[in-house]
């Protein structure tokens, strides 16, 4: 499976987040295509360590592509592999598909001549011996998110006259759904009617972020650095949106601030719309 968590390994491992290697990282880029029978993953990667590249070249280490969707698939790739085809009967992409590359030792490896590692490891490199089948490096993870029929929508509106309250905010699997009992509650026909609905948006975000905290938080707070992209698709959208807007810490107390940062001034626009209505004397 794909391994991402930062931890202290017993020897230097090349990754994009650890500083064991000074020479650089291990970057992977993947593009996804399809034809009738197969999904094709086009791969492009860069291993920024001459030591590890030499091990691969001399076949003392192997390179694997890990494809994780419903289950894990491993493909041994060589330096010339440009793509991997997987039949549609054996991989589903309508949920999340993650890909990573890793380097595995094929025999015992001495790090005595590894010039790419940091100064701490260099102090000990004469003695560093890494055994067979051990991971020597892993890349970033490329994620394909499927199944969402509304991949970017955060909100949906529905009108349901049978509703037992005037409005209802539901956290759906991919979106926040605002149910109205009556179309009139959407202020249709008024100028700038869109912005009159902003309080509902605010409430929707509030509800969704509260759940986000209870899903991923400890003691009512979440550090977004510490959690992976959530599998729940609504939460995944909120997660990406918060990160893009540099909201990294979410707590019960900072929900309003987070909403302010991720939404574009919904309350100010609402206030402006109300003022506009008042001054137009309608």
């Amino acid at each position: 499976m794909i391994y991402k968590k930062d931890a202290n390994f017993p020897y230097p491992v090349l990754t994009n987040t650890s500083n064991s290697y000074e020479s650089g990282g291990f970057t992977l880029n993947v593009d996804l295509k399809e034809n009738t029978d197969n999904y094709r993953f086009d791969i492009e990667y860069e291993i920024e360590s001459d030591f590890l590249k030499e091990l691969l070249f001399t076949r003392k280490a192997k390179l694997y592509l890990v494809v994780q969707s419903k289950d894990n698939k491993f493909f041994e790739v060589d330096l010339n592999t440009m793509f991997i085809d997987i039949p549609k009967t054996r991989i589903s992409i309508n949920n999340r598909t993650s890909l990573q590359m890793s380097i595995q030792s094929k025999e015992e490896i001495s790090f005595a001549y590894n010039d790419d590692i940091n100064s701490f490891f260099k102090e000990f490199r004469e003695e560093i011996i890494v055994s067979r089948y051990a991971i020597l490096g892993f890349s970033n993870t490329v994620i394909f998110e499927g199944s969402s029929s509304r991949p970017f929508d955060l909100f949906e509106r529905k009108v349901n006259s049978a509703l037992s309250s005037a409005i209802k905010i539901e956290l759906g699997s991919e979106t926040i759904i605002i149910h109205y009992r009556d179309v009139d509650l959407q202020f249709v026909g008024l100028p700038m009617s869109g912005n009159f609905n902003n309080p509902y948006i605010y409430m929707g975000l509030q509800k969704a972020l509260s759940r986000f905290i209870s899903n991923y938080g400890e003691d009512g707070q979440v550090d977004l650095h510490d959690i992976d992209l959530p599998t729940d698709q609504l939460d995944a959208k909120l997660y990406r949106l918060m990160k893009a807007k540099m909201v990294f810490e979410l707590t019960t107390e900072t929900i309003d601030e987070a909403i302010y940062n991720i939404s574009d001034k919904v309350i100010e626009k609402y206030a402006l719309a109300v003022k506009g209505l008042a001054t137009s004397g309608d």
Partner: peptide
């Protein structure tokens, strides 16, 4: 059901 390639912000 479109498939989205999620932006990777783990890279430098």
């Amino acid at each position: 059901k479109p498939v989205v390639k999620v932006q990777d912000d783990s890279l430098p």
